[in-house]
Design a protein around this nucleic acid. Structure first.
Lengths: 129, 129
DNA sequence: GTGTATGCAAAGCTTTTGCATAGGT
DNA sequence: ACCTATGCAAAAGCTTTGCATACAC
């Protein structure tokens, strides 16, 4: 899907990108809006939605979703990783690496192209805190 | 969370349960409503929402969610399994067994209690079809 | 100067809730 | 008979869209 016109480089989208650079973890729409307004006070909700969609389209962000957490966005290009959700502080983390052998995971006949892994438990700071 | 009063055994909830017994795969709210109406024509959307919530509370159903697939409900008590989504026919399957070693998957300090695995690819009937 | 991206408000979805009544016990 | 669960309609989210204007180029 190629774009016919060049993407304009707006203050708002830069702010949104910076929000993700500042918080290296998956963020919800509301968080992007809240943090983004610290950078551009006028930032509007529609603009956030529109730019999140654009950034996903451009492959800069990835959309993830969870039954209890709703929709989250995270930066791409950090290699394959898993997600860990802390049941205590309710934050989602990214864990490097992959402990899954795709060829072992599906019965014969299924062609596995890709996978997502979501872990649940308690994160280090909640364990020690 | 214990219930103070007994749950009544209604035609509508029975119908909803039967929908899941008839289709042994994760279903969306719309599918539950559509198939449920074949069993109880008057079945209402609110009733579906209310009963899905009840059945999750009672542990009879589990809620799963995915960025592109939205919210799905599936029966519990079938042992741990993974999900496979076919990119061609768009159906979601349950795959038996587990190919993940939880202790290998997270760095020190993270306590992993549970996990979900979602696979993507092509299912056998789409491969051969 | 031209035309896209933004802000605002309204519209569209999906899900939840209030209320009268049907129906399970 | 009692009182919960249902159906209906309204309300409450969350997300998208139309339109005038600001602003990137």
């Amino acid at each position: 899907m190629r774009r016919k016109t060049k993407r304009r480089n707006t203050t708002q989208r830069n702010a949104i990108e910076n929000v993700f650079r500042q918080h290296e973890r998956p963020l919800g729409v509301d968080e992007v809006l809240r943090y983004g307004r610290r950078l551009v006070a006028s930032l509007n909700q529609s603009t956030v939605y529109r730019n999140l969609k654009i950034l996903v389209e451009d492959g800069w962000l990835k959309r993830i979703s969870h039954a209890s957490l709703g929709v989250l966005y995270e930066r791409t290009g950090k290699g394959h990783h898993h997600h860990f959700h802390c049941r205590q502080c309710n934050r989602t983390f990214e864990l490097p690496g992959c402990a899954l052998k795709e060829e072992d995971v599906a019965p014969d006949g299924f062609i596995v192209e890709d996978h997502d892994i979501f872990l649940f438990g308690i994160c280090p700071s909640c364990v020690s805190g």
